[in-house]
Amino acid sequence: MKQVTERPESSSEARSAAGAGPGPAGTQAHNGRTTGPGTAPAATGAATTKPSVDTPPVFEIEKLTVRYGGKLAVHDVSFDITEKRITALIGASGCGKSTFIRSLNRMNDLIPSATVEGSVRYHGQNLYASEVDAVQVRKRIGMVFQKPNPFPKSIYDNIAFGPRVLGMDGNMDEMVERALRRGALWDEVKDRLKTNAFGMSGGQQQRLCIARALATDPDVLLMDEPASALDPISTGHIEDLMFELKERYSIVIVTHNMQQAARVSDMTAFFTVVVDEASGHRHGEVVEYDETEKVFTNPSDERTEAYVTGRVG
């Protein structure tokens, strides 16, 4: 499928991230694991990669590098995403957050020029191994996009689409109700399930998209700036919903909203834009990954501190 135009950040990355060689980037190969000077010994090295969280990893990302048409977009990302936690990806525009999150369910496969190096292990299985089918990956790993994208069908059919294409067994009415309840939407729409989803408000549409993603029983939910197109009240609904959902699902969320990241997430990965001085091309790297509280109150990298305190970005 060739027209994937709505890639808020990645298209600019594709244009700007060309040719950044291993030069300066190579020296920062393990940014995700390094810590700045003056950090307590307990937080260095492996401790940053696997912070003190009691649940096992759902994703183990190792040296992930994504290119668009040979141009570097995300370079050498390594960290683990823990189960049943909310992991926020923050950073300035063009730092590769969207590209990164789309590599977790192989949505980047839809862009013919995208190439991925390194590995993303999902419950131990490398998603980029040759025998893995991207369609099977997306069955298990749901995704919600920046702009609500309900199908031009009834609310019921929007939810039922996933279970139908996956050939899931069971009572469809019950599956739809369960998904809508998980999406905290059931009480609002139970009397108009057969009406077109386009008649809903933007916030309802986004919760419908969340419920739709949950209908196929994934265990991970990827959210690419799910609230950036919504008003504060709808955003509040989405955030409340995320708290409820993390009991059952691992959630990864890209957000530009610092307060939102601080409010909802347990873990935070800070991405930054690295400019190749020779060519001027820009790509994204992970500077810091840690518990959210630490990233926001006592970051180990000064770039993180500058960003979360609002001095840059």
């Binding site: 839809l110 996009f145 309900p150 294409v165 739709r212």
Partner: peptide, 20 residues
Amino acid sequence: RAVPSSIREGSMALGATQWQ
């Protein structure tokens, strides 16, 4: 072409094949 790519992405993200 008038069918937005967000619809295709939404469908693929649910595990639908390109054919579906």
